[in-house]
Design a protein around this nucleic acid. Structure first.
Lengths: 252, 252
DNA sequence: ATCGTCAAATTGGTCAAGCCAATTTGGTCG
DNA sequence: CGACCAAATTGGCTTGACCAATTTGACGAT
């Protein structure tokens, strides 16, 4: 809980001065992002920094636009973006309010503060049930698709190249074979989260041929369970694989 | 492209000016949807109906705004919404293009079609294991927190108010009690997956006191399993609750 | 004094017209 | 034929204005 002044009401003076990010030059981002995105990011920052506490009302559009140094249509575009991803709520004639649950970063994914250990545990439980579902509706085509990722991964390891992409394909293929695209999306997001910028430095542990070979063997155990149509064994094998993966990643 | 356009101009505002919009008669959207949302839905419909094929370029903003009978700022707001959920791609100075994979319904953050049914199945499996985890590490404080959401939900239903927020708190509390913040985030995101245009219009089914009472009873079954420290029963109860929820929402 | 009532003030919703910058296009020139 | 440049096209952004929904507060009735 940051500062307590929530309903300043008459105290809308906001003596702060936001950096005018409009106008020419200076903004020399390699990738010139659109203005509404810059505004949205800035407002997100102000919310997370506690300047705009949850459930509080933002300044009026006209006033906020002036404070940010942008026009009202541009600010409105940013507010719409923030409304879509659930950061704010816009009430006609009343104002723009910070959603109560907007204390954290980007609404969809890419949030931090979640330990790698937790991430791997989440993957274990989710992919565990995914494996059970996939096992229940497995087809010869699905089996060969999984096997293909294993052989490709083996080839990459033998050649000394990075088998990460094939590792990813193994897990994503399994997820897609569950027949549930929502679960497939979750598995994909969780997998990719491990390789986000902050986690990258940790993954060097994986640049070890022996380590990759162990992971490959675990994949083969999972495949065997799928081939045998043993859902519980498949789930267990996934758990084993991802728990071991966790240890390899974060140590133990 | 003078092909059958939507309404002509109209200086008099604030009347029904948008196209049919496929307004289902029983949909009782009490709150008038914002214009940019109506425009975005209409463009989505034109894309899915094949009027704007994937990878094709939409008419210029000025022209399209005139065809739809809206102003360019409003159309731009709609295009930003469509850009955010991955339906279109806006290239400065070039044009607005339909994303290749936007042919399907749903179009939620660039992933393939995720039906409400799939969403509820995903919630069932994820929250099922979450319930097991929460059961294993349940404390008296956790139990009372869960119970509090149930009693709050009961009073809301009795008062004729919308208990949705307390329903949400029940599921999120359970997720947090699993001790894994990654899983908690997944549960929250899946619960809040109301952005999908499909889910949005289907949720009115829940505006029924009897339906909510049934959901409340299912919550109490889950609570009983937690209190009895029976992980498998808790998982089963969660499955039952969310499968029933799925039927209530999407029919069967 | 308290409570309803209604009008003014506030705020979001929308529109109109215009200028700028980036891209595309079509021509000219080498 | 290809490189190059200028006009046309298109999105990006601003200013200014008016309408509609909500909130606020003064006023009058009880």
């Amino acid at each position: 809980m940051p500062s307590a002044t929530i309903y300043g009401k008459a105290n809308c003076n906001h003596s702060f001065r936001m950096q005018p990010l409009a106008m020419s030059s200076q903004i020399k981002q390699v990738e010139p992002r659109r203005l509404y995105q810059q505004i949205a990011d800035q407002i997100r920052g102000l919310i997370q920094s506690g300047h705009f506490p949850p459930a509080s009302r933002l300044p009026a559009e006209r006033e906020l636009a002036q404070q940010l140094g942008v026009s009202r249509p541009s600010l409105r575009e940013a507010l719409i973006a923030l409304e879509i991803d659930g950061t704010v709520e816009i009430r006609s004639g009343s104002g723009v309010y910070v959603c109560p649950m907007a204390g954290r970063a980007g609404s969809m994914m890419g949030s931090m503060g979640e330990s790698p250990s937790e991430l791997m545990q989440a993957r274990a439980v989710v992919e565990g049930v995914v494996a059970m579902l996939a096992c229940a509706r497995m087809t010869p085509e699905g089996l060969s698709a999984v096997r293909e990722t294993i052989t490709a991964m083996r080839t990459e390891i033998a050649s000394g190249r990075d088998p990460l992409e094939h590792d990813r394909r193994f897990h994503l293929t399994l997820a897609e074979l569950s027949g549930n695209s929502v679960l497939a999306r979750i598995v994909r997001d969780l997998f990719d989260e491990r390789h986000s910028p902050l986690s990258t430095q940790l993954s060097v542990r994986f640049d070890n041929r022996n380590t990759w070979s162990i992971a490959l063997a675990e994949h083969e155990v999972i495949y065997a369970a799928l081939e045998a149509s043993d859902p519980l064994l498949a789930q267990s094998a996934v758990h084993t694989h991802l728990q071991a993966s966790r240890r390899r990643w974060v140590g133990d």
